[in-house]
């Protein structure tokens, strides 16, 4: 995806931003949540390109969310721009620390250790009565550089904020994918020995990926906390991580945009299935995941590539 892809992506974001006032409230809030989660997924895509799966990405999501909620609660500070940055930075710092450890691991050991770390946070939060234990607590109503919208206006403002953060995140990740560090993902998956003998530390490249994924996870969590207005320990539970991994596999790692489309599809399917057949929504998700792995191993994104190839073959 080069300049043209980026232009198309930018236009899509602008279109989504412009369309907002015309959309019903429930669509606005669904898209906000979906696009907040899409950042976490984008982080997982960064790892997945190098063959790494984190079954504990909810750790950063939860840290981002709690960082926002706690800052607002303890300091009374409610400016969204600063809060989102705080969420991203808090998760990013944690990722820097954890990266020293995690970057040595591969395959299921990478997945398992990330899982353990996210469950540690869950265990701590569940037992923290001052933070509401399993119930969590509410996030103060945010302000935008002094502007304090309510209800629908707040929803719209958060929607735009999420789109803005996503657009910046997507662009930066696009740049990263075209750098040496980003392009080394497939080589690391293929053959670490060769990478080392070309003069690059595989560990440090993976560490970078862990940190990028952590920051994105934290930003996603921060936005989700603001949009939902509530945080609880389940944000760090393994099923939350599982959901993010799910969308990653669904989206595939070929395109940055796939993380956003995948997230949107996931959120839509989930709310639809939840409404229409509440008893069967997990089964729906499981079946979709299974079918994706069996028939679209490179994710929904590969459909686009396939169509494109077919188009080129015809012309």
């Amino acid at each position: 995806m080069g300049g043209r892809g980026q232009l198309a992506g930018g236009l899509m974001f602008l279109f989504a931003a412009a369309a907002a006032p015309l959309l019903p409230d429930w669509v606005v809030s669904l898209v906000t949540i979906a696009f907040a989660n899409a950042l976490v997924v984008l982080g997982l895509v960064v790892l997945w390109r190098a063959g790494l799966v984190s079954f504990g990405q909810a750790l950063y999501y939860c840290i981002g969310a709690y960082a926002v909620a706690l800052t607002a609660r303890w300091t009374g500070f409610t400016d969204v721009f600063a809060l989102v940055v705080i969420g991203g930075v808090a998760a990013g710092l944690m990722a820097v620390l954890i990266g020293f450890l995690l970057a040595r691991y591969r395959e299921i050991f990478f997945a398992m250790l990330s899982l353990a770390l996210s469950m540690i946070l869950y265990g701590v939060l569940v037992k923290s009565e001052s933070l509401g234990s399993t119930d969590g607590f509410s996030v103060a109503t945010p302000t935008f550089l002094g502007y304090a919208p309510h209800r629908d206006a707040l929803g719209l403002a958060l929607y735009w904020l999420t789109l803005g953060v996503d657009a910046i995140g997507a662009m930066l990740v696009g740049v990263y994918f075209r750098s040496v560090a980003g392009a080394l993902a497939a080589p690391i998956r293929d053959n670490e020995i060769r990478v080392e003998f070309l003069g690059v530390s595989v560990t440090s490249i993976i560490h970078i990926k862990v940190v990028i994924a952590g920051i994105l996870g934290g930003l996603g969590g921060a936005l989700a906390a603001l949009a939902i207005g509530h945080v609880d320990p389940n944000m760090s539970y393994w099923t939350t991580s599982g959901g993010f991994v799910f969308v990653t596999i669904l989206a595939g790692s070929g395109y940055v945009a796939a993380a956003f489309v995948g997230s949107l599809v996931f959120e839509a399917v989930r709310s639809f299935a939840f409404d229409v057949m509440p008893q069967l929504w997990q089964m729906t998700l499981g079946s979709v995941l299974l079918l994706t792995i069996l028939f679209l191993p490179d994710g929904l994104g590969s459909l686009v590539a396939r169509l494109k190839r077919r188009g080129e073959a015809k012309s």
Partner: peptide, 27 residues
């Protein structure tokens, strides 16, 4: 790197050789 083409193999090797190394260089 089996999943890359010959050119991509060579280009990533060349790009690594030309960059200063270290975290910032690689990014």
């Amino acid at each position: 790197f089996p999943s890359l083409t010959v050119f991509e193999n060579m280009r990533i090797a060349a790009a690594i050789a030309r960059c200063s190394g270290g975290v910032l260089g690689n990014i």
